[in-house]
Simulated scan of single mutants.
Amino acid sequence: MKNIKWVFVLYSLGAILSMFMIGVAVGVKSYLLALAAIISLIMIMGNGFKTKKKYREQGLL
């Protein structure tokens, strides 16, 4: 339990929520919501990979 990096858990949950919102947006045929969810997904995943790189460079992974 002590090896869990909670920041990555939060990033993954945020990405899952964004993917879920893409499906909801397609279901209700809201292209604006789908676009916002896709942008959100790209930003969350980008920040997650950037944080992972920073952790790896600091030797925390």
Rank of each mutant, 00 (worst) to 15 (best):
I22G: 01
K29S: 12
G48N: 03
V9W: 04
L60Q: 08
L13I: 13
G59C: 10
A37V: 01
L35Y: 03
L60D: 06
S12P: 00
F20M: 11
L41S: 11
G46S: 06
Y55D: 11
L32C: 02
L17F: 11
L41C: 13
K53W: 09
L10F: 15
M21H: 03
Y31I: 11
L13R: 13
N3F: 14
K5M: 06
L33W: 04
K53L: 12
N3K: 14
K2S: 15
I39H: 00
K54G: 05
N47D: 06
L33Q: 02
F8K: 02
L10E: 15
K29R: 13
G59V: 10
M19D: 02
L17I: 12
G48L: 03
L60F: 07
R56S: 13
F8P: 03
F20E: 05
G46M: 06
V24M: 02
G59S: 12
Y31E: 14
V28P: 01
A34G: 12
L35C: 01
I44G: 04
A37S: 13
N47R: 09
M19F: 07
M19L: 13
L17Y: 10
I44V: 15
L35H: 01
I4H: 05
L33V: 04
E57V: 07
F8Q: 05
I4L: 14
S30P: 04
E57K: 12
